[in-house]
């Protein structure tokens, strides 16, 4: 799977086109070995996606991890810098959580549900390429405390299946 994804990245930077990624199907699932999954013994209670290619993995205790999807990471290409949120900042849903710079593009990341940033993934300061290596695991961007868990019920948040379906629709346009 990993090899396939990298091959796709290579091809995309050569062609410069974003649309070719839906083939890397299940790679938008959370990495089972990364902190966003292992934070609680049973794993996250729910993993949801936004149309802007963020994922949120929420755990029973109200803690959640946020990152960008494999599709987005592949489309952006090699990350050179990740702008992280400040710990302690309370962000409304849709506010900027940070940004990823790759190959001269600054791409904004948005808070999927309102909450307070408990921790930013400092590993990304030293190694922004983690975003490309494991965007669904070790490349998580922020650990947040969700303000209101009912926001996870929002129709704007997609299941993995619905998210990947939306990627296919984009491709078939």
């Amino acid at each position: 799977m990993f090899g396939v994804a990298r091959a796709v990245v290579g091809r995309s930077s050569a062609a410069g086109v974003l649309r070719v990624f839906a083939r890397a199907q299940s790679s938008n699932a959370l990495t089972k070995t990364g902190l966003p999954f292992t934070y609680s013994g049973a794993g996250p209670s729910t993993v949801l996606y936004t149309s802007q290619h963020e994922w949120i993995a929420a755990h029973q205790d109200g803690t959640a991890f946020v990152g960008i999807t494999r599709y987005a990471a592949d489309a952006l290409g090699d990350a050179t810098y990740v702008e992280l949120p400040e710990t302690g900042s309370s962000l409304e849903k849709g506010e900027s959580l940070g940004s990823v710079e790759s190959v001269k593009s600054a791409s904004e990341i948005y808070q999927p549900v309102a909450g307070e940033v408990v921790e930013a993934n400092a590993a990304l300061e030293e190694a922004p390429q983690l975003i490309n290596k494991d965007p669904m695991g070790d490349g998580w961007i922020a650990k947040i405390r969700i303000g209101d868990a009912s926001e996870l019920q929002s129709a704007e948040l997609l299941t993995l299946e619905a998210y990947e379906r939306s990627l296919k629709e984009d491709q078939h346009e």
């Binding site: 190959v103 600054a106 791409s107």
Partner: peptide
Amino acid sequence: RGDIVLGDRKVSGSAYKIARGKA
């Protein structure tokens, strides 16, 4: 690097921004 050149010299520099469904 996707930059426009004339001969071996650059004549243009590019940068990009992506946000909220637009770029």
